[in-house]
Amino acid sequence: MTPFKYTRASDAADAVRKGAATGVKFLGGGTNLVDLMRETIERPGELVDVSGLSTEIVETDEGGLRIGAGVRNTALAEHRRVRTAYPMLTRAMVSGASAQIRNMATVGGNLLQRTRCSYFYDEDGSRCNKRVPGEGCDAIEGFHRGHAILGASDACIAVHPSDMCVALAALDAVVHIEGAKGARTVPLVDFHCLPGDRPDIETVLEPGDLITAVELPPMPFAAASTYRKVRDRASYAFALVSVAAAIEIEDGQVRDVRIALGGVAHKPWRATRAEAALRGAPAGETAFAGAAATELAGARPLADNAFKVRLAERTIVSVLCELAGVTA
């Protein structure tokens, strides 16, 4: 680890002030940042600990929830309203990492966790455009079984590893940000970027921007939502593919639906094409399969991750069938 200074922010304004200097990074639970610093992939000169800030979950006037950026993953998962009104979020939380990590990790840090691409981690031995823009990407012709099938570029095929973000993408969450220029909000689906030719740019945050909260709008039909994660071992593994979904059915027809995918792209992937195909369609396996195929039609898999296309399609169909109470 490169030497750094450690300070704690007393409040958001203090954090934003401190964060304005170059080389400063905010510290949440440290479960990703400390690891990356040890690998010398991240070399901040100063850490401003923001894990003690905004640690509350409050109900909004509209009947949604405002989740502080400092809320620990476990606290979010076990929150009563989250469990009853947004169960897909609880399910996503508890399928991520391990209990110990969930006790440490914060919502802000989870949003900003970086990819687990092996070549990204191999700081001295491999080429990676995300670490060194323009250097090349060793994953494209290397091990990429876990890599992206949607929205990837010739520069980078990494995936965003978060489970939480997939549920947030499906739930129309909004990210609250405070920066030098004041406060602003960004919908979660616009918060993370596709790699394009600058995979080092991962979100719309400006240097020094602090995440203060994530807001969930009310979504009554999300009370019966779910999250399914497919992985190589039964627990403590990142997703190969995951699906967050909620569906509202009236008279056998899909009134409204939310679907987001994890493990398939550089960002949590909101399946807007599938959703559009489903609204107004009869709720049944045929429509679900058609919608899934529509979404995955845009997939550009490589040799070793082509299975993810089928896996994603099948998992979407299965999850929707389960929610709709029809057998696949």
Binding site: S118, Y121, D122, G125, S126, E141, F143
Partner: peptide, 12 residues
């Protein structure tokens, strides 16, 4: 290509 182990960790 490089004769290098690419998953030298207990998470990979």
């Amino acid at each position: 290509r490089k004769g290098r182990v690419l998953n030298p960790s207990l998470s990979e």
